[in-house]
Amino acid sequence: MRKVLEVRNLRTHFELVEGTVRAVDGVSFQLNEGEVLGIVGESGCGKSVTAQSIMRILPKSARIVDGEILFWNQQDVVDLTKLDSEGEQMRNIRGKDIAMIFQEPAACFAPVYTVGEQMIEAILLHEDMSKQEARRLALKMLEKVKIPNPESVLDRYSFQLSGGMLQRCMIAMALSLNPKVLIADEPTTALDVTIQAQIIYLVNQLQKEYSSAIMWITHDMGVIAQISDRVAVMYLGQIVETAPVKDLFRNPLHPYTRALLRSIPRLARRKKKLEAIKGVVPDPYNLPIGCRYHNRCDSFIQGLCDEREPTEVEVDVAHRVKCFLYGGR
């Protein structure tokens, strides 16, 4: 398996009037060719900021303060953090080599241009072809994502289409240039459950055909189970556990992962009360000292967890966890 993307010790901070928010604080992971990496965590844990850091489309107040984002493009390796975010090289990667789909499909298409205009624009930005050719490609892609009557959809505006349809259009647009990496930032969250299942099925199918590596961001453990090969669990700007998807569900190690899994309702265990994780996510301006999770953890060790930060340990093959329970001192 060859790496396409590797993030090393990424730190992205927001400088706000109220203080500094360390939204991503030392995140490392890698993405291999053709695999689906699920990134899961509560809202505000830094999942989306990680994605935006890779795409270099962070808001003005955010800055990458440390770390590397390595991207294997054919033979060369580029560190995306070193590129000018507005420069030509980054722009060529963005959308062509690394494409992204977003949470609210309806809001991601501008209301004043047709869906087709926006798809064709995306193609023409990166490919040297005529408008007709671009339109033909867009049409072909819409057929690929199983949109009925694609010709008419191209000339529709976003407000005339349903969320599920638009998300298909967005996937078509993202895949039209055959990207090496597809970043999906909660693409099914805003959709109905049935549509959600259709989209996941569609992406699974297309992934076989296009062999793009996918980074799938979600807060939904159920979605993770359906789509990913490997999973990274994030909590407050850090990855606390990485594991192949089966290992993670069978043998969750980090107390946070366990708590997350316990909070999923299951039909089989009907009698048991559904558990919620105690406490609230701490104030982002004042992150806890020591392990970030210690104030909500069941296995909290006084004098250790609230004083030092655990390091990552490899417990099993490709199963890494950041917790004192498994060493890491």
């Binding site: 489309i57 060529n92 977003f102 991601c108 298409f109 926006q118 624009e121």
Partner: peptide
């Protein structure tokens, strides 16, 4: 600040 602007940027629009 709307998502469609970020989406357009993510497509590689200068």
């Amino acid at each position: 600040e709307k998502p469609y602007v970020i989406a357009a940027k993510a497509r590689g629009l200068p």
